[in-house]
Design a protein around this nucleic acid. Structure first.
Lengths: 191, 191
DNA sequence: GACCCACTATACAGATCGGTATACTGTTGA
DNA sequence: TCAACAGTATACCGATCTGTATAGTGGGTC
């Protein structure tokens, strides 16, 4: 990726996230990137493609950040679940003050045949699988169920964070996850 | 409200929710409502005003529906909390297959000075207050905390429903809420 | 020196955006 | 009977939308 292309993607990512995808035109993206529209279209071909790369890049960066956080976490499954919430809190504080970019993009992209659509759904499926896998290490027989509950808490926290419904919802969700894991661990120990 | 104005608002509500606010133009709204743009502007004055009335009307209808569900619920606080989740599931099945309209609108309306902005935030605050009040009837000392947890579960379920992450997330959230209320009730009884 | 490539500058095409203007029709109620 | 009002039909405004065309510049590399 050329330097100009990188600037385009950075400007587009910021504008798309802050103002919405449909609300941002290519002229503005080019101007903010300090690039002509010619260069923009030479590198990306269409606005749609910029949207696709914006979401794909953001997903990739989030997964890399999360992987790094999980590597630093103790190899205990419960602690690793909590590490996901910690990662989300740190990520949101820096990059996601308006909530989840995938959820926000989904609000604007209605057509399932849009090339960005699978990126959104795949990202959420991946998160659910992550929670389910971690849950499976704790309670093999209720992994799906526990994974879904963690997913609900996590998604709810991201929305609450984006809408500023109350203070520090991600920490609250983390706390609830911890209580849930403790209860699950106890009942599993009883079995 | 004149019949034509009503048709405009109905068409706008459907189009805004399904395709997004910025993606829908006034020409399309007028055409779908079987109305000329002159009539549309005579009644509403601006697209922004249509957006405002769309969100306000949706919020009002949801609150009326919820009130009706709560009236039919037993006067036991725990059952009333579950009735909220039941109401959400019924409402979502009919009107909200793409998730919460307030959350989706928030993704497109970034400017806090936009006249639709307070409608969105007020709606979420109202839901949080509702959960907190119901929680207060169960465990007076942890009302805020329990209310926030219920809010997280509820918001998470709406997002998961809209993105179709897994099957019937609202029922799952209801079940989690039930378990949470039972555990809270037990610990409160112990006190 | 010749070539390639990323990039700039500018202009424009065709469509659509939100919004307005003019002229007219049909119904209702004082 | 007449005025008010809801609504239709159509044409238009300036601005902005995505996308393209032409022409030219500067820095590398063979």
């Amino acid at each position: 990726m050329t330097p100009a292309a990188r600037r385009v993607l950075e400007a587009a990512a910021r504008l798309f996230y802050e103002r919405g995808i449909h609300a941002v035109g290519v002229d503005l993206i080019a101007a903010e990137a300090g690039v002509t529209k010619k260069t923009l279209y030479d590198r990306f071909g269409s606005k749609e493609q910029i949207v696709v790369e914006y979401l794909a890049d953001r997903d990739e960066r989030w997964r890399a950040f999360l992987a790094q956080c999980l590597d630093a976490a103790p190899p205990v499954s419960a602690a690793r679940v909590l590490a996901v919430f910690d990662a989300s809190r740190a990520w949101s504080a820096k990059n996601s003050s308006k909530g989840c970019s995938m959820v926000n993009a989904h609000a604007e992209i209605s057509d399932p045949s849009h090339p960005a659509y699978p990126i959104i759904t795949r990202q959420k499926q991946w998160m659910l699988t992550l929670f389910t896998d971690l849950a499976g290490d704790i309670t093999p027989y209720g992994a799906d169920h526990l994974g879904q509950t963690l997913m609900l808490l996590h998604e709810g926290a991201l929305v609450a964070h984006g809408l500023n419904i109350f203070a520090d919802p991600i920490s609250h969700a983390r706390e609830q996850a911890q209580a849930l894991l403790a209860a699950t661990g106890n009942s599993a120990a009883k079995r």
